[in-house]
Amino acid sequence: MFHATLDSSKTWKLIVDALATLLTETHFVITEKGMTLRQLDSSKAAMIALDLPAAIFQEYECDGEVEICLGVDELTKVSKRMAGDDKLVFTHNESESRFEIKMLGQAERRFSLQLLIPPEERTKQPSIKFDVQAELFADAFKQAVKDIGVVSTYLRINADDDTLTFLGDSDTGEAEVILRTGEESALCELQTKKKSSAMYAINYLADISKSMASDSVIIQFSSNKPIMMEFSIAEAGRISFILAPRVERR
């Protein structure tokens, strides 16, 4: 049994948009503590982790553990029908294997979605240690990705004690974006255990950065290791993306 209400359809839309950047199917695991999701994209180069604690919902009720597997296309289509001030009600109908989304606004609208069969294996949250942690304005990150994307198909991030540098090059030229810590800088915080440098595919970063809905984003990475980009949603909620690095031709 699962039942929850959410006051803001905007939050839900942002969540669905973030899921749609990487996935074709969503696999939610719902417990009494809240809603979570851990999934790799089809190429296994990227991962999305979503945590929505029960507290962000106005009403929340869940007995035991419920797995909900839905097609992203269907979720996106439904969320497009939501009006800005709709109140949302989610219900899991076990007997008919349906997931119900009700929109309460000027009219009461009910969408009932067919559940898919959940995958046998669950992806676990990997425990990766990072050498660099930076907090910066999401907008600054988005712009940096766009800037580097002008000339390059990959983005290299270098970090030392007080600067974070984004680089890219190709036959057409080079691009560089430098962020230094300090007052009025878009880089709020930078902790570097050791100097690090890593390269990531720009097409993934572009998609991921588009779905960043908060003001600031936390970036963590190590040399030639995955990068984690984390931002909050509806205050207590959290979305993080993990992306595997590109390496020089093996």
Partner: peptide, 15 residues
């Protein structure tokens, strides 16, 4: 081919 050669897979980094 170039993508396959240079893009790593996340599962390689999971312990």
């Amino acid at each position: 081919y170039n993508e396959v050669r240079s893009q790593t897979v996340l599962t390689d980094f999971f312990e």
